[in-house]
Computed example of a mutant assay.
Amino acid sequence: MRVSVPTIPAALLRDATSAQTISPAAAVERVADFLAPGNVALITGAGVSVDSGIRAYRGAKGRYLNPNYRPIFYHELMDETAKGVAYRKRYWLRSYLGYPPVRDALPNTTHFALAALQYRNVIPRLITQNVDGLHHKALAHVWDQPRLHERILELHGTLHKVNCNHGHATDRGIFQDMLSAANPQWKAFADELELTGKRPRTNPDGDVVLEGVSFDEFVIPDCPSCLEEGRRNSVHKPDVIFFGESISKEVKDRSFRDVEECDRLFLLGTTLATFSAFRLLRHALELKKPVLLLNVGPTRADGIPGVEKLEIPSNVVMRDAVRTLLSSQTIEDLTVEEMLRSGVNQPPPDDEDDTAPRSVG
């Protein structure tokens, strides 16, 4: 089986030139004007979560920050042979250490600005490629879980749930506790990382860079529900779409409906390298929807007729754009005003030239 990692076509990266600069004030005005008619569908990518301390896979030049990036593939993780066991040991040890920073991350100013737009129904449909749950966190104090599920579609799943290969679901926090109980030596190591704050470099899928260790002794616990059914089974995966895995028909169909039911499409912090997101852009263009893309660096949509692109960081624009758009409501609506005062600004260290050859997952 040959499965490739989606990326921006080499020709686009090779031919990329410096985008036309736009002032923050002009960008704020343009975004506010674009969103003003309402009924906007939004697609977000990893760039939205950078200010929460979660790294993007690609830097400002559109290339992977780790040029030797090689994720684990779905068929490898779910392989029931000895080879698959080795893949799972490596994945779950690295994910065990990498999940806490994602779990503890807080919504940034962009998340809360978007939450205000969702709350006021300017953006009734949000589709995110991110698996960190930060859009949910920004709205959890005003919306219950059914409402969050109705209004936010996690295109690539979530890190906060784990499924065994027989379909039993486990909360990620509970699964972390199971991993801790089965691996006390790594629990002690994780506790030390928490105390010192010297966490390994973390990727947006909760995986960490971890070199020079043996994965052989890491224990993956059996699924409790499978044990109750009389079988031992330690084949687990997070509720995330891995490379080589298909998005469910339900999620795919819903993503297309979200685009069809909107009047315009806003793309934020995404290079559209994955086809699952890029095909939604193509669908919007086929339906003659206005499209605005805000991202720093090359994207798969660059040069496509019908796509207007602003090259400027979201944290420079979004809060002021929402204030401009909802100016009268922020005075009357204390919830909106609180959202527009909320959000962290904690980007990861500026060490994007991570050239060490290593595999991810």
Score class of each variant (00 low, 15 high):
Gln176Glu: 07
Pro204Glu: 10
Leu210Gln: 01
Ser4Met: 06
Thr110Ala: 07
Met78Cys: 14
Val131Ala: 00
Gly173Asn: 11
Asn233Arg: 04
Lys198Met: 13
Arg63His: 06
Gln129Tyr: 03
Gly133Met: 01
Gln346His: 14
Arg172Glu: 05
Lys89Thr: 12
Ser276Ile: 10
Asp33Ser: 15
Leu281Phe: 04
Lys249Cys: 13
Lys289Thr: 10
Glu245Ala: 00
Pro313Leu: 00
Leu285Glu: 12
Leu12Cys: 04
Ile312Ala: 01
Val251Trp: 01
Cys223Gly: 02
Pro290Val: 11
Ala16Arg: 03
Thr274His: 05
His135Gly: 01
Arg125Ile: 11
Ser327Tyr: 12
Gly230Pro: 09
Asn130Tyr: 03
Leu134Ala: 01
Ala16Cys: 01
Tyr69Ile: 14
His141Glu: 15
Ile54Leu: 00
Val85Leu: 14
Arg201His: 08
Thr355Ile: 13
Leu155Pro: 07
Val142Tyr: 03
Asp207Pro: 07
Phe189Pro: 04
Arg63Glu: 10
Leu35Ile: 10
Thr324Glu: 15
Gly157Pro: 01
Leu210Gly: 04
Phe112Tyr: 14
Thr271Asn: 05
Lys161Glu: 12
Glu286Cys: 07
Met339Thr: 10
Gln118Arg: 13
Gly197Ala: 09
Ala181Cys: 02
Lys289His: 08
Ile312Cys: 02
Met318Pro: 05
Ala105Asp: 09
Glu228Gln: 12
Pro238Ser: 02
Met78Asp: 12
Val360His: 13
Trp92Ser: 03
Glu337Gly: 02
Ile8Val: 13
Leu42Thr: 12
Asp253Asn: 13
Gly98Ala: 06
Thr274Met: 05
Ala140Gln: 15
Glu308Pro: 00
Ala188Ser: 14
Leu159Lys: 01
Lys237Glu: 03
Val307Arg: 04
Arg232Met: 10
His236Leu: 12
Leu293Arg: 06
Gly212Asp: 10
Pro298Phe: 10
Leu155Trp: 04
Met318Arg: 02
Arg282Thr: 14
Asn66Cys: 15
Asp132Ser: 02
Leu114Pro: 07
Val240His: 00
Leu294Tyr: 11
Phe256Glu: 13
Ala10Arg: 11
Glu311His: 07
Pro347Val: 05
Ala138Trp: 08
Ala25Arg: 15
Val219Thr: 14
Gly62Met: 02
Phe175Pro: 02
Leu13Pro: 02
Pro347Tyr: 10
Ala113Ile: 12
Ser18Arg: 14
Arg55Ala: 02
Gln329Glu: 15
Val131Met: 01
Gly62His: 03
Arg282Pro: 05
Lys309Met: 07
Phe175Arg: 00
Ala19Leu: 11
Thr355Arg: 11
Ala284Cys: 09
Gly361Leu: 03
Ile54Ala: 00
Pro101Phe: 03
Val40Leu: 08
Pro349Thr: 15
Pro224Thr: 00
Asp258Gly: 08
His136Gly: 04
Arg2Cys: 10
Val3Ile: 13
Arg300Gly: 00
His156Asn: 07
Phe278Glu: 10
Asp207Arg: 03
Lys288Cys: 03
Val40Glu: 06
Ala188Trp: 08
Tyr64Arg: 09
Ala301Tyr: 05
Leu139Ile: 08
Arg300Lys: 01
Leu35Cys: 03
Thr355Phe: 05
Leu265Thr: 11
Pro67Cys: 13
Pro184Gln: 01
Glu352His: 11
Ala138Val: 11
Pro305Thr: 14
Ala273Phe: 04
Arg70Lys: 08
Arg2His: 14
Phe215Ile: 12
Asp333Ser: 06
Glu332Met: 15
Ala10Tyr: 08
